[in-house]
């Protein structure tokens, strides 16, 4: 099914355009992908580091108001990432690094969902300046940092462990 989807996608005009039919699209998407990365890792990183005890003077409620920017970064990278995939699906579907990248993104998503469904986020929201978050929230923060650095690792390894450029 993945094979069939990839074959169909590869035949679309979108795929042609991204893969070089319109030459500036690929480099422009790569540039945006790095900007999205910085936005996501920066905002999530600041939040995670605060939960782990750095810059304790920051109250967590107001700090979480920066999260829409991380979501924007994630959105930019979802769109540009999909465009790379559309441009040349076959360099990704059999690419082990791509598989791990998607797995790590998925795990980061599960981590966030757990943070919300366990109501940990609401507890954290009320943690003011100078106070510690519960140990469970520290675990979520450390996991998040590990997973996002992991996503960058697998993304970088696409051409080296896998076969993408």
């Amino acid at each position: 099914m993945l094979q069939a989807f990839s074959t169909w996608l590869h035949g679309t005009t979108l795929s042609w355009a991204v893969a070089g039919g319109i030459p500036w699209i690929w480099p422009a998407c790569e540039t945006l992908h790095f900007m999205g990365l910085a936005l996501l890792v920066g905002v999530v990183g600041v939040l995670d580091l605060r939960m782990l005890g750095m810059a304790k003077g920051l109250p967590l409620g107001p700090l979480q108001r920066l999260m829409p920017w991380a979501i924007l970064g994630f959105g930019i990278n979802m769109v540009t990432g999909f465009l790379f995939f559309a441009g040349d699906p076959f360099q990704y579907i059999h690419n082990i690094a791509f598989g791990f990248k998607l797995l790590f993104i998925g795990l980061a998503g599960v981590n966030v969902i757990l943070f919300y469904v366990t109501c940990l986020s609401r507890t954290v929201d009320g943690v003011g300046a100078g106070h510690d978050v519960p140990p469970a929230a520290k675990l979520v923060a450390a996991t998040s940092l590990f997973l996002w650095v992991g996503v960058m690792y697998w993304g970088r390894m696409l051409p080296f462990i896998g076969n993408a450029f």
Binding site: F34, L37, A38, L39, L40, V41, G42, V43, G45, V46, G57, L58, P59, G61, P62, L63, R65, L66, W69, A129, W148, M152
Partner: peptide, 24 residues
């Protein structure tokens, strides 16, 4: 390095521009 250097700068810049304004 890019992620943390540019990303943390961006977080501070956004706060300076008035987002999350209750954040000291």
């Amino acid at each position: 390095g890019l992620g943390f250097l540019v990303g943390t700068n961006t977080a501070v810049d956004l706060r300076m521009l008035g987002f999350a304004e209750r954040l000291p």
